[in-house]
């Protein structure tokens, strides 16, 4: 039916899948950002740089230690979580009493330092990183052919998003997290170790960014700028979903990814700005975001 518009179904499916892939990364990254903002009240501007660091982690693991993709998928998030612990304990912790702006400035500075350092040593051209051979080749879905690795990314990101949502909304640890987000002082008066939760949450958010980085390495090249290209879109996703809303970040991440893909099919010139146009409209109509509870 789209032939009438001069659009082939293959082009449509192709862009849909591309949108879904981008959406997978939007969802994974904005999820981490939302969890961190919810509990720590820190707008983690370093999230993109940490995602980049995750991709470089996979690259270093392979080139320096001969650790393959599967090893990196396990080890990089652990290493990233430790980096998260370090950042939270030595830096962010000192800013909780101050305005949000200080956390944003600190993490923005961290992002600049990380990206600057990597650009200095690795240039801006990007390093190739091959998909594991188990996931190379095509996957024939009947109506279209999809690279196997892309299908894998979509599935892993869905599983991770669902697991994180489940952990926060349906488990005892999640209840403790939600209570500490809502009223940290009272949670502490009940004997909950909120400072420890803050550290673990930041570490968890950073680990998610790290996994996203490893997943991205075979798709986009490992590149010092890969995080800064993405971070602005991620912030738009978080704002549209509603600051601090877990479900909002996930749903909006995928939806905006797909919307962006569709725009590329139907009106390519708008594809670069469609997410921001949505953000502007949402801010006008529902300032708390689509899933935000508002104050």
């Amino acid at each position: 039916m789209f032939e009438a518009l001069g659009i082939s179904p293959y082009q449509l499916y192709g862009q849909l899948v591309l949108g879904l892939i981008n959406g997978s990364f939007y969802a994974l990254l904005s999820l981490g950002l939302a969890v961190i903002f919810g509990l720590l009240n820190v707008i983690n501007f370093a999230h993109g740089a940490l995602y980049m660091l995750g991709a470089f982690g996979a690259y270093f693991a392979l080139t320096l230690f001969g650790i393959n993709y599967w090893g990196a998928l396990i080890l990089v998030p652990i290493g990233m979580a430790l980096i998260g612990v370090f950042i939270e304990r030595t830096m962010l912790k000192r800013l909780y009493q101050l305005d949000h702006l200080y956390g944003l400035l600190l993490t923005f500075g961290l992002a600049l330092i990380l990206e600057g350092a990597f650009r200095h040593y690795y240039g801006s051209s990007g390093m190739p990183y091959a998909a594991p051979k188990e996931l190379q080749g095509p996957l024939n879905l009947g109506f279209m052919v999809l690279p196997l690795y892309r299908a894998w990314v979509i599935i892993v990101s869905l599983v991770l998003c669902f697991s994180t949502w489940f952990l926060i909304e349906r488990t005892r640890l999640g209840a403790v997290l939600r209570a500490s987000t809502e009223n940290p002082i009272l949670a502490q008066a009940f004997g909950i170790n909120v400072p420890l939760l803050l550290t673990l949450t930041y570490a968890g958010g950073v680990a998610l960014a790290g996994i996203a980085g490893v997943l991205a390495a075979p798709i986009y090249q490992v590149n010092p700028a890969m995080g800064s290209n993405l971070i602005i879109v991620i912030f738009a996703v978080v704002v549209v979903g509603g600051m601090g809303s877990i479900l909002g970040a996930i749903v909006t991440g995928y939806a905006l990814g797909i919307l962006e893909g569709l725009t590329k099919v139907f009106y390519p010139p708008a594809s670069a700005i469609v997410i921001f146009a949505v953000m502007a409209i949402v801010l006008l109509v529902r300032p708390a975001g689509l899933f935000g509870r508002g104050e």
Binding site: A179, N183, Q188, A189
Partner: peptide, 26 residues
């Protein structure tokens, strides 16, 4: 602050302090 309750002290705060984002059971 989070060690005080662990001494065996329970606190029922002013205005009850029920968490809106948690179910009754939670």
């Amino acid at each position: 602050q989070h060690r005080v309750a662990h001494q065996g002290i329970g606190y029922v705060p002013e205005e009850r302090g029920i968490f809106a984002s948690l179910s009754v059971d939670e």
